[in-house]
Design a protein around this nucleic acid. Sequence first.
DNA 1: ACTTGACCCTGACAGC
DNA 2: TGCTGTCAGGGTCAAG
Length: 292
Amino acid sequence: MPELPEVETVRRGLAPVMEGALVNRLELNRADLRFPLPEAFAEKVSGRRIVSLGRRAKYLLIELEDDLTLISHLGMSGSFRIEETVQGDFHHARSKDSKHDHVIFHVEHDGKHQKVIYNDPRRFGFMHLWKRSELDLYPAFAELGPEPTGNALDADYLARRLSGKSQPLKGALLDQTVIAGLGNIYVCEALWRSHLSPKRQSGTLVTPGGRPKKELTRLTEEIRAVIVDAIAAGGSSLRDHIQTDGSLGYFQHSFSVYDREGEACRMPGCGGTVTRITQSGRSTFYCPTCQK
DNA sequence: ACTTGACCCTGACAGC
DNA sequence: TGCTGTCAGGGTCAAG
């Protein structure tokens, strides 16, 4: 589920509870997610204070005291929720998938005790501990591309990265070393907003001289805009959602093309039909009429 | 060097 | 009701 905007929304939802909090106890209900949990994980985190919450691409960064960063990736099905710690809640009704509550942070903040629960049915998520001062050496970060909303992403950069590539745009934009944080949904959405076909060969957006064509400049703008919009939507959904059940990360978005196979294209005046194709094993949704 | 495909795992859903 | 097949928002690795 979580692409960059969702992870950012999770970060913002967790911040009031976790930033500045003391982790009294880290409860582990299994030894591994996608990878083994860190060596002596509970011992290393318990008793430490959380300095701040950060994010890099789709990675949530829980910054602990003593130069330690807990790196959390939510995979496809990871989510966090916040629960009050109620005295005598031994008989509290457990939600139906609590069997996938793998890691529980028992935190204390201003005398208030709460649980931050990581749930992940498919266990494609993972957690690592890394020295904050050496975070750039974390293998997944070493090759990571720029953030889509950061200054490092511009049309000139993309022209350098896409020049000469025969790879279809869909695959190039999913490549985390090109842009960090885009996933299947927002690549589809950005291409639709740019009127560009996901099958278009990446190098054709660059002039022979290596300059970005106008459509690449447009694409760059739309990538930024679709992420900014989604983060804003996540922020508004947080306010409604967090108070009801404490869950973060599964708010409902509405997309323009993603998961709309067979529906009328929403581009004004287009009149086409959204089509689903498979590219490198994953679904792509686009409108063949207005995306060229 | 680049690109694709199989794989990790569980749950939801459609069709029989 | 239950079975089976298909699909899912991610990343990694091997093989083409």
